[in-house]
Every structure is written in C-alpha cells, then in structure tokens.
Design a protein around this nucleic acid. Structure first.
Ligand SMILES: Nc1nc2c(ncn2[C@H]2C[C@H](O)[C@@H](COP(=O)(O)OP(=O)(O)OP(=O)(O)O)O2)c(=O)[nH]1
Ligand SMILES: [Mn+2]
Ligand SMILES: [Mn+2]
Length: 476
DNA sequence: GGCGCGAGCCAC
DNA sequence: AAACGTGGCTCGCGCC
C-alpha cells in the first residue's frame, strides 16, 4: 500500500503491512514537500499517473521493492519498522477520536472579542485621521511611515524597512499612541477563535506524518499544535478544549527535551551533571538574564529563557540575541561567549556536527533518521549559513521527534493490553494529551510516565511533567 | 471563486 | 551581508 494512515481510516486495522511507499518516500527524502502516490511515481519513473486502478496497482508493485531497497541501503529500515510504520494506525485512531470542545464557550468569546476589535478599529481610525484596513500591512505602513512620519530604528535591514511587526510597533509606540493600539488590536483579532465546531462537539485534526524535514509530525485542518497558551486571552481558547463528563484530560510533556538530547549527544560535563542533579536550565537562564530567582519567575520569564537557550545552541547571533532581549550587541556577544564557555562540550559538539555534515551532506538522528542538507557545501554564503543552522538543529529536533513517536507506539500497545478506556488524542511535538475516565487517572499517569521516560536510555534522565484537569488550560 | 505569495503571528 | 530551528493559518494583494 501507499498511505498506511489512510488505509487504517478507510478499512480499519491491517495486519502485516510490509510496504508503505509513502513512508519509504518520506524517509528517503524528508525535505520533499509531496509524497502523494502520483508524485512519488513521477519522481521514480518520470511518468504521469493516469488514474486507473490497474495502473496504480501496477506501479505500486514496481515502486515498493525499489524504495524498499533504498531504505535498506540508507539504514532506514529500523526507523521504518519500529517507529513510522507502527505509528500510522495510532495517528489514524487519534484523528478519528478527536478532541471535545465547548462550543458555547467559543461562541461567547468570539462575540465578545469581535465587539472589542470593532471598538479598537474605530479608535485606530480616529488616531490615524482616516479609515483604512488595519489588517493590511501595506496600508498600515503608509499611515505610520508616510502620514504620521514615524521613524523606525535605522538598524533594520532595508528589506524590512517598513515592517509593521509587533516588535517594530513596540519601538514606535514611544513616538505616537497609534502603534500600541495596533498591537492591542492584533492581540485580540489573533486570539479570535476561528475553530469551527461540528455537531458531534469534537474537533478532528489531521496529522501529517510526512510533512516535516526533521521527523516531527504536523497538524492541520485545523492545526491543533498551535493552540494559544501565552496570553491570558489565548488561554481562554485553550480552556475550551475539555474532557467529557466523568473524564479528565491528562497532559504529559517532556521536560527541556532537546537540551537533554543535547546533553546526551555532546556529553558536555556541566550539562550532563545539571540534568543528573535535576536542574532546570531554562530557569537558570531566566535567572541570569532577568535576575529573577526560581520562585519569583513567571511563565513568561521561563518561556523567554527557553527561546534564548534554544536560540543560542542553534546558531543565534549577537544581533539576534540583542534584538530578542533589547540589549546591546556587545553585551549579547558576551553572553553567548559565556554560555559556550560554561557548556564548552556543547560548542565542541556543534563544531563537530558541522564538520560531519559537510562531509556527509546529511543530518542524522539518534535512531538513524536522515535529512539531506546539500546546501551546507554551497558557495552561496546565505544558503550555506542557513544550511549550517539547519544542520545544528535537525539531529536534536529529529531525535526528540523519534523519542515521542516511539513512546506513542508503546503507549498505544499498553493501553490496549491493559484494557484502559483512556484515549491518546493529541500530540504536540513533545507533549501527549489523553482523555480518560477519572477513575483511570492513577493508572494512566503511571503508564504514560513510565513509557515516555523509559522510551530510550540516554546519558541523562528523561523527565516528563504530567498535568491533569477538566480542560487543557487548568491542569495540575 | 481560487491560486500563489509575503507579512504577520500562533505553537513547539 | 546576514544574523536560532520546525511547522500551519489568516489576511491582503495581484492575478487568472
Ligand atoms: N529552536 C527552537 N526550538 C524550540 C523552541 N521552542 C521549543 N522548541 C523545541 C525544543 C524544545 O525542547 C521542544 C519542546 O518545547 P517545550 O515548549 O515543551 O519546551 P521544553 O521541553 O524545552 O521545556 P519544558 O520543560 O517542557 O518547559 O521544542 C524555540 O524557540 N526554538
Ligand atoms: Mn517540553
Ligand atoms: Mn511541549
């Protein structure tokens, strides 16, 4: 067959699948956008598929052994057999089960927020001195930079000279009250729930298993991997994702996952020791950058520190860090220096990754998943720089993806074996969301923690944080 | 009505 | 000169 998830959705469980050519194709070329049967056939045989079922079957017969051999040659058979293929039916079931939403709550919010957006729009028009489409960056730029003659900081590149992005508006708000209103307008209009709720009261996403270059999943129609969590307003939307009566939502999220993978790969003694001692690197960075101790830190501090930690290990420049923190480039450069002085092994590892990837042209995860990065040897500076940062990120992001996929397969099996009613309903890159009868809480918590933390032994402990509650916002 | 693109912004 | 990575969605805009 070609697409095992689709097969499961249409036909139900199938035992003994050998060839899933869609997954073969993806494992061989994860950076290719399309893995439709017709596209794969086109790439392999340079023919347009006519559409007849006989022709399809015929090409499938020819295609499968060819791709299979390539998969074996590239040592991808293990990832295929142990991770991606068994995951497909698990994803199909998750899609079919869906997640319950509270339609009234969403409607209430929609109405209230639309009203507020209308009010802000009028205010904005008044401050601007004319009516215009606030949603149009082009029109907004004319108002800000031509009509009101506001001056953006000169240090921006010329390509984005007339950007109206939030951080620019923030700077401009010193000169005029309008930019702040725009920010507020966008905050609300962005949070406006656009989720359509069906009669069943459950929302069904579609997980793509072949949609990312690193091995992560993606979610669409609707995307349930980017439900707001940062702003108070956005969190209202998250609260509309609820458990059925008599049930709980249980969320299990890996702690500092890619940093732990980094510790494993790099063997950096400071990082390894930190994790063995149960330390929180995100909190530590928050402490250093914002000068707030762990107890005084809020979610925003830690979130910002997260972006700094991952930014630095994935090639963030002094320019970028200065931008993120609103500090001088010199100070940012010193911070990055100090960072790699402390985690010297991380720096060495990153250098080695670059050298390796230049040699092989391929990034590889712990489990052998590959991502070709030929641009790393490009003579074009910009292309090469991008490729280098990609090479730094892919093995870590990809390994984290492999770990949770494997855990999902194992959890799915155990839920069946131990006949729990609990259902796995969402995956958000390093988080799994379950819906389960309140009675199953303790059992499920133990099972999930065991399987996620024990999925594979690393040089540092893998830790999972679990939250349980009536909706996706209020968990403890 | 739909496609493709860039800007902007949500999440991990 | 460029200047963390991985995604998807909405919108405006130009176009067919
Ligand atoms: N490059 C990059 N990767 C990120 C960023 N945010 C999240 N990630 C990746 C790395 C994280 O380990 C992984 C999971 O995200 P989480 O929000 O769960 O953060 P993390 O697990 O590191 O910390 P946690 O202990 O769960 O709060 O996704 C980012 O801003 N840049
Ligand atoms: Mn996490
Ligand atoms: Mn997470």
């Amino acid at each position: 067959m070609h697409d095992p998830k689709l097969f499961q959705l249409l036909t139900g469980p199938a035992a003994n699948i050998r060839h899933a050519t869609q997954l073969y194709s993806y494992l061989l070329r994860p950076t290719t956008a399309n893995h439709n049967f017709a596209d794969v056939v086109m790439r392999q045989f340079s023919v347009m598929l006519g559409g007849g079922p006989g022709e399809r079957a015929d090409y499938l017969q020819r295609l499968a052994p060819i791709l299979r051999q390539q998969v074996e040659e590239q040592q991808l058979a293990d990832v295929y057999e142990k991770i991606d293929l068994p995951l497909a039916p698990v994803l199909a079931v998750m899609e079919r089960v869906g997640v319950r939403v509270d339609p009234e709550a969403l409607d209430r919010m929609s109405h209230a927020m639309e009203k507020e957006v209308r009010r802000l729009e009028k205010e904005i028009w008044k401050l601007a001195g004319s009516e215009f489409n606030v949603n149009s960056p082009t029109q907004l730029a004319e108002i800000l930079f031509d009509k009101l003659n506001l001056q953006p900081n000169a240090r921006r590149g010329k390509a984005k000279a007339r950007s109206t992005a939030a951080d620019v508006l923030e700077e401009l708000s010193a000169q005029h009250p309008l930019p702040a209103k725009i920010i507020e307008y966008r905050e609300i209009s962005n949070a406006l729930p656009k989720l359509i709720h069906p009669e069943t009261g459950r929302l069904h996403t579609s997980f793509s298993q072949t949609g990312t270059a690193t091995g992560r999943l993606s979610s669409s129609d609707p995307n349930l991997q980017n439900i707001p969590i940062r702003s108070e307003l956005g969190r209202e939307i998250r609260a509309a994702f609820v458990a059925e009566e008599g049930k709980n939502l249980l969320s299990a999220d890996y702690s500092q996952i890619e940093l732990r993978v980094m510790a494993h790969f790099s063997q950096d003694p400071v990082l390894v020791e930190a994790f063995r001692n149960g330390e929180d690197i995100h909190a530590r960075t928050a402490q250093e950058v914002f000068g707030v101790g762990p107890l005084a830190q809020n979610a925003e501090h830690r979130r910002a520190a997260k972006a700094i930690n991952f930014g630095i290990i994935y090639g963030l420049s002094p320019f970028g860090l200065a931008q993120q923190l609103g500090i001088e480039q010199k100070e940012a450069a010193q911070f990055i220096n100090a960072y790699f002085t402390r985690y010297r092994g991380v720096k060495d590892y990153l250098d080695k990754i670059l050298a390796d990837t230049r040699k092989t042209g391929v990034a590889k995860t712990l489990f052998g998943r590959i991502r070709p990065i030929p641009e790393i040897n490009s003579p074009q500076v910009q292309l090469r720089n991008f490729a280098e940062r990609t090479a730094l990120n892919s093995p870590l992001q990809g390994t984290a993806a492999d770990l949770i996929k494997l855990a999902m397969v194992n959890i799915d099996r155990r839920l069946a074996e131990e006949t729990l009613e609990a259902k796995m309903i969402l995956q958000v890159h390093d988080e799994l969301l379950f819906e389960a009868p309140t009675k199953e809480r303790a059992k499920l918590e133990k099972l999930v923690k065991e399987e996620m933390e024990g999925v594979h032994k690393l040089a540092v402990p893998i830790v999972v944080e679990i939250g349980v509650g009536p909706n996706w916002r209020d968990l403890d």
